[in-house]
């Protein structure tokens, strides 16, 4: 099968998912519960995506754990996104060099 059919399906599904609620939904939600749900959901999604997957992200649990610890500390100190992300990679790399 042509790779372009795969890419068309991938891109099509992903776009429709993004477009439909963003374009069609016009009302203001009044339910406090639903509003709370929408407020917490992004944090919940990102957390579920991160754990435990982050510990497998470098192919070695020890280097990944050190990278995670460094990222947690720097994120706690409210450092910029890019600093936290790259410092995690550097920490994982340096740890790997010593193992």
């Amino acid at each position: 099968m042509s790779i372009y059919i795969y890419i068309l399906v991938m891109a099509g599904v992903t776009y429709v998912i993004r477009m439909l609620p963003f374009t069609l939904f016009r009302q203001r939600i009044t339910s406090r519960f639903v509003r709370s749900l929408l407020y917490y959901l992004p944090y919940a999604v990102l957390s579920a995506m991160t754990f435990p997957a982050i510990f497998y992200s470098t192919g070695d649990t020890v280097t990944a754990a050190v990278g995670t610890a460094v990222a947690l500390v720097l994120a706690y100190l409210k450092l910029p996104l890019i600093v936290v992300a790259l410092a995690a990679a550097v920490a994982a790399y340096v740890t790997g060099a010593f193992l």
Partner: peptide, 24 residues
């Protein structure tokens, strides 16, 4: 190879940078 595999954590590091400050 070792640099490429260390780069695998970047995406998750970015996620932590988004969720940790509001959680704090």
């Amino acid at each position: 190879e070792d640099i490429a595999s260390a780069m695998g954590i970047v995406l998750y590091g970015m996620f932590l940078a988004i969720i940790v400050p509001p959680a704090r």
